[in-house]
C-alpha cells in the first residue's frame, strides 16, 4: 500500500493478548471480482466505543457481517474475543449483540413477546431471562409499552425495544449498524446516553454512523471508503492528519454578520481553499499567509478565530485524495507514467 501512514499505524493503542475484543488483521471480503473490504486491520479494546464511518456502500455493514461469520473473509484473519471468526462463529454469536439499521423486530409480536423470543433464542434460563428483562425494561422505560405490538410503537420506542433484544443475553460486544438512522434527535441523544452507560460497564460498542456529531462522541473512529480503511484514531488524532490541513494553510471560523452573502463572496477569493456554511458561521480553509484584508474579512463586526478542522473536513479531504489516487491509477496516462 502506498497510502500515507495513518495515525492507526503510529498511535493506535495496541491492546495486547486477552484485552483485545476485536482483532482484524489485513482482512478482505470479496463478492466475485468486487472487493467490498480491502485489507482492513483494526483492533478494538474492551469498553471502547468505536465508530466506523463511511459513505453508503463503503463496506461498513459487510465488515460487521463478516465479523459475525455471516460472510467469509477472502484473506486475512479476524478474531472476536480471541476466537477465530472462521471456525468459531456460532460461539461468537452467542456473546455479541447486534442491532441493524433497519428495524428488524417482529412487528406482529408485542414488545414482551419479542423479548421472550430473543431470550429463548439465546438460551437464557427462565429465571435469568426474567431478571434481564426486568433490568432492561427499567433501563429503557419500556414498561408501559410491553403489550403493544412492536409495529405500533413509535420510532424511538422501537429502537429501545431493538436495543433490549440485542442486550437480553448480556453481550460483552454490541454491533450497532446505523442505529440512529431515521430517528428523531431526542431519541438519538437518549440512545447515545444509553450507549455510554453500557460502555461504562465495560461493554464494547462497535457503531456505524453517518452523523459527524456521533463520530465525535466515539473514543476512536475509523473511516472506510470504497472498502479501504483510510483513517483510524481518536477524533483528535484524525484532525491532526497531514493533508487535512495542507502546509501553509489554516482553518478559520467566521461569525458576526449575515453569513450567506459573505460566504458567496469568500468562495471567490483566491486565498480561500474551502468554505462551508454552518448556520450563522463559516468554516473555511485559507492560506496562512493571507491577511484578513486579503480574505475580505476585515469588517470590524466579524469575529474570526483560528480553529481546527472538523471530522467532516477530515473525511471529505481523505475521500477526495483517495478519488484522485484511484483516477490516477485507472487512467491510461497515469498507469503508463
Amino acid at each position: 500500500m502506498t497510502l500515507t501512514p495513518t495515525p492507526s499505524t503510529r498511535n493506535a493503542p495496541s491492546p495486547s493478548g486477552s484485552g483485545v475484543v476485536i482483532d482484524i488483521r489485513q482482512a478482505s471480503v470479496r463478492f466475485g471480482s468486487f472487493t467490498a473490504v480491502d485489507r482492513v486491520s483494526l483492533t478494538v479494546g474492551p469498553g471502547e466505543v468505536f465508530g466506523l464511518l463511511g459513505p453508503n456502500g463503503s463496506g461498513k455493514t459487510t465488515l460487521i457481517r463478516a465479523l459475525c461469520g455471516l460472510i467469509s473473509f477472502a484473506e486475512g484473519e479476524a478474531f472476536v474475543f480471541g476466537r477465530d471468526v472462521r471456525t468459531d462463529a456460532e460461539r461468537i454469536r452467542g456473546r455479541i449483540g447486534y442491532m441493524s439499521q433497519k428495524f428488524s423486530l417482529y412487528q406482529d409480536l408485542t414488545a414482551r413477546e419479542n423479548m421472550d423470543f430473543y431470550a429463548g433464542i439465546y438460551g437464557l434460563p427462565p429465571a435469568l431471562a426474567q431478571q434481564r428483562k426486568h433490568e432492561l425494561i427499567q433501563l429503557t422505560g419500556l414498561e408501559p409499552y410491553l403489550d403493544r405490538q412492536a409495529g405500533k410503537l413509535s420510532g424511538g420506542w422501537k429502537q429501545r425495544l431493538a436495543m433490549v433484544c440485542a442486550l437480553i443475553h448480556s453481550p460483552r460486544l454490541v454491533f450497532l449498524d446505523e442505529p440512529t438512522a431515521g430517528v428523531d434527535p431526542v431519541a438519538r441523544r437518549d440512545l447515545w446516553d444509553l450507549l455510554f452507560r453500557l460502555a461504562a460497564e465495560g461493554i464494547t460498542l462497535f457503531v456505524t454512523t453517518h452523523y459527524m456529531d456521533e463520530a465525535e462522541r466515539c473514543a476512536r473512529v475509523g473511516y472506510i471508503y470504497l472498502g479501504e480503511m483510510l483513517a483510524l484514531g481518536t477524533p483528535h488524532e484524525l484532525k491532526q492528519m497531514e493533508g487535512v490541513t495542507p502546509p501553509g494553510s489554516r482553518w478559520l471560523e467566521i461569525s458576526g454578520i449575515e453569513s450567506a452573502s459573505l460566504f458567496t463572496q469568500m468562495k471567490e477569493r483566491p486565498g480561500v481553499h474551502e468554505a462551508t456554511l454552518f448556520g450563522l458561521s463559516i468554516h473555511a480553509l485559507v492560506d496562512a499567509q493571507a491577511s484578513l484584508r486579503d480574505l475580505g474579512l476585515d469588517d470590524p463586526r466579524l469575529t474570526v478565530i483560528e480553529t481546527e478542522p472538523t471530522l467532516e473536513d477530515v473525511f471529505v479531504s481523505l475521500s477526495k485524495a483517495q478519488d484522485r489516487k484511484l483516477q490516477l491509477a485507472t487512467s491510461p496516462q497515469g498507469g503508463g507514467a
Partner: peptide
C-alpha cells in the same frame, strides 16, 4: 435504576 443489577447479572450469565 437497575444498572447495578444489570452489572451483576452480566457476570453470572450462563447459557443453557
Amino acid at each position: 435504576d437497575g444498572f447495578e443489577a444489570f452489572r451483576s447479572s452480566s457476570q453470572m450469565l450462563m447459557r443453557q
